[in-house]
Design a protein around this nucleic acid. Structure first.
Lengths: 153, 153
DNA sequence: GAAAAACAGGATAGATTAGTCTTGTTTCCA
DNA sequence: TGGAAACAAGACTAATCTATCCTGTTTTTC
């Protein structure tokens, strides 16, 4: 239901939040989060354009969060890479409906609203502080592994 | 967040539920739901393979629901065309996590769970009986209009 | 049994997503 | 100032999704 890009972006920012306010290189993030390095670079560029992260070139540079983990929500990240677009008007543009949603689209929109709300209520800090099970969201890892490998293999 | 295919499939079965237990031709459904006819045909084939609808060739034939609108949920339809796959194990396969989800994936899975639950609780009959706003989910229409037209146009 | 209605299925094409690779540019530091 | 570290950006490929078209097959009806 969520794109690979969303999954990757969330892993990256969670990792950055865990290190905040220090910067990490794209290669470091890629290894820790097991995301293909070159693809992650593109995603991080997108996050930079949206003001979620900032980058610093050169030796000792890297990527870091613009805001603190307390100020940044999962929804901010999701909307930066693959926005949750609510159903505002009838997709069939039926004149008799106007801006009212039919019962079907009302339910679909309501479902998206619950996701939106859940994501808006989760700050990165809160995710990191979650006391359940493994306390650290993403820990060690071996090498980057594309999600696609799951499918036809 | 939901694919075009899911949207189209839901429109089609809602339309069929509204006509139930009568059959409608693919062309009739396509026009009523404003879904591209040939693409809808493929989606309906998929729904037939999953046992959601049944088809009848020849004059007077068409597509109809296998179950009654009371027995069929939105989730049944969604899962037939584009399944909501819950996160069962850590996508990073971290050995230290085992089958436990990290806080991030727990939240993502929880979001999907709410959608799953909402869709499981909505039968087609219930959607049709919704007293709010326009009572009929999908009514008249002009001609099929691909969702894609919204984007670059 | 022929014609028409209707679905079945394959081929194809365009758009988007996912992923890789190469080159360029900025920045730090010795 | 030169080299290495690191991001920036574009080209390119593969897979998937969306969509269209064409031919075949089944079924009903006259």
């Amino acid at each position: 239901m969520f794109s690979d890009t969303v999954e990757y972006a969330l892993r990256a920012v969670i990792h950055l939040a865990h290190q905040a306010p220090a910067a990490r290189t794209t290669a470091q993030i890629a290894e820790a989060t097991q995301v293909p390095k070159d693809y992650l670079a593109k995603i991080l560029q997108g996050l930079a354009k949206k003001g979620i992260v900032q980058t610093q070139r050169g030796v000792g540079g890297g990527v870091s969060l613009v805001k603190t983990p307390e100020e940044l929500t999962i929804l901010d990240v999701v909307n930066a890479v693959d926005p949750i677009t609510r159903i505002a008007t009838c997709p069939l543009k039926l004149p008799t409906h106007g801006t009212n949603l039919c019962p079907l689209h009302k339910r679909m929109d309501a479902a998206m609203a619950t996701v939106e709300a859940a994501f808006r209520d989760s700050t990165l800090a809160e995710v990191l502080a979650d006391p359940s099970t493994a306390s650290v969201p993403l820990c060690d890892g071996t090498d980057p592994q594309p999600l696609k490998l799951r499918r036809k293999a």
